[in-house]
Design a protein around this nucleic acid. Structure first.
Lengths: 336, 336
DNA sequence: TTGTACGCGTTATCAC
DNA sequence: GTGATAACGCGTACAA
């Protein structure tokens, strides 16, 4: 107690009048211990408020019980939901979670990736900020790793992502069916694999319908150029490929006096709760975040268990929720 | 490499032809080392891909560089934002973050609190799920701890929270000024200190205006009783005390054909981005989450540095953003 | 710059 | 079968 941080296994052993090995055995249930001895040990633990030092425990035993997760940005509800789901999953198997954010910065990601390895995690779940993850990954084939959401260029990892192209295509097909004559697609950056895939899916589904992409940075929500475009040549449909741009454009439309659903069809990738609640409700692609976390954890678990097989890729299907913001009735109201 | 997890400091020392103490010195910059020796060590580190085992390092050195944070629910954007802000803050001082969620369950909170101590964190930041935190806290006065957001019954901790009552009062005063004849207040539970304080602030500011509270659990979003009440005896103003209820009631109003801002004044505690963007925009109290994280970290830093002073409490001021959903013009339109 | 005791819990080995 | 003893995991601290 004078030194270090609280009572050690030695103080417990002393108080219980047994050896430290016995304390360890009682606490871990490894060897069979006489009931009265076990009771004495537990009493001593209770009295001293002993808490095992897992650093020492893991150091010796070699197994880790710690999972590292790195996400581009925790304030993004999608990533927060992912981490939350993951937290619940790993806890059930007695793991803890170290969470770090790369702040959408590759350099930061590399730095944090190295740093997190100092904790000797049993495995890593990485939501990379761009496609160059492979170069930044320290050469450590022994460390189980699953990449989720955004797809790195090098496919030498276990991957789980949503079916961006198909979902995006479904939205655009729907917009065409509802009679949209043209479509403006807005996303943060085509440099991000999810956005790129969604855009490609949209293009593939557009057929003869004119379709154009406008990039919006992460910072400049609602850039003037986009506002200008929406004012001077308003498209009949706008499709936003992520939550950031959905927020930006939704507000922009309101500022311009364009009613989503009435004056322009409006759809969003990455559904948030409010989209169901506004009037008209916003057509949106709901990403199965919990399922993605679940899948990532399952894959990682297999690797931790020793699976040495080739990298797997899983694509998860999204739900596309068609709502008032893209209904034909509404868009026809906008004519004449 | 055969044993354990990757190269150890011993392999580096062997490859560089120096002692492990020298490797440690080079890597930590503690003692002065000859440049050429240092270069040899760095080369060996590089070649082997050596990463220090911080468990061993911290075990020996006694300092921790790890902060534990426990929140009621990571999917709540407010808590996610808090964790995110905290993550950026602690990183700057070379700390890592272990994040756990109590799932709004006191038993779970107690369990996780105990568990997290196994990592020997340098400090803990706790956003408790109820007021009884004190009883669940393991007796460990040595562990620096700051409580944020919700206030435990026992004030023997450093505390940081927002000025719930004052902000809530400002909203209700505004509603009265806008001519609301009565007000329905909705919140998850008065058992949570934040909600209780907001309700008390609302009551104090209501004066002679009739005001009533309706609790809504965490799970039963939009309970039938609330819908019934809104239909049969719609108040002139509704004030939701947290994000969950804001979402529930906002959708409920739409379902009932009551237009927020036109048929009923509507305000929310805990502003989210979409509230600015809908039409009419929603009057809301913006909680200074980043500031709260900053303050919690500052307080914790002081404790970690050894401050033994009496517990401090900090109350942070919120911004109350008055918008269209509570404008007089709108509510008057609703009169017959 | 190096040798080595040390932090603490686990595990293998050994004695009763 | 039960419990004790001691080596060990790895990086750090301090004396040499």
């Amino acid at each position: 107690m004078v030194k270090g941080s609280g009572p050690s296994i030695r103080s417990v052993a002393a108080l219980a009048g047994v050896s430290i090995a016995t304390v360890s055995n009682v606490l871990n249930g490894k060897a069979s211990v006489a009931p009265d001895i076990a009771a004495r040990v537990h009493a001593a633990v209770e009295r001293l408020g002993y808490v095992r030092d897992s650093r020492a425990a893991r150091l010796r035993s070699g197994n880790s019980r710690l999972i590292g997760v790195i996400v581009p940005d925790l304030t993004n509800p999608m990533f927060a939901a992912f981490v939350s789901a993951l937290e619940h999953l790993v806890r059930r198997e007695d793991y803890d979670l170290v969470v770090v954010s790369s702040a959408n910065d590759p350099a930061e990601e590399a730095e944090r990736l190295r740093r997190i390895r100092e904790w000797r995690p049993a495995g890593l779940i990485v939501l990379p900020c761009d496609g160059a993850l492979a170069e930044r990954l320290p050469p450590c084939p022994a460390l189980p790793l699953v990449v989720a959401d955004r797809i790195p260029d090098a496919r030498r990892f276990d991957l789980v992502a949503v079916d961006n192209a198909a979902s995006s295509g479904a939205v655009v097909r729907h917009l065409r069916e509802q009679g949209a004559a043209d479509c403006l697609v807005v996303g943060t950056s085509l440099g991000i694999s999810t956005i790129r895939e969604r855009w490609e899916g949209a293009v593939a589904a557009a057929g003869t319908m004119p379709i154009a992409f406008v990039p919006v940075g992460f910072e400049d929500h609602a850039p003037p150029a986009l506002a200008e475009r929406l004012r001077t040549a308003p498209p009949q449909a706008v499709f936003c490929l992520d939550h950031e741009t959905t927020l930006a454009v939704y507000g922009l439309l309101r500022d311009l006096g364009l009613r989503a659903g009435a004056d322009v069809a409006f759809a969003s990738f990455d559904e948030k709760e409010w989209m169901r609640l506004v009037a008209p409700a916003v057509t949106a692609v709901r990403q199965p975040v919990e399922e993605m976390a679940d899948c990532a954890w399952t894959m990682l678990g297999r690797r931790i268990a020793g699976d040495e097989g080739p990298p797997r890729t899983r694509r998860l299907r999204c739900a596309v929720n068609f709502r008032g913001s893209t209904q034909r009735a509404a868009s026809e109201r906008a004519l004449p």
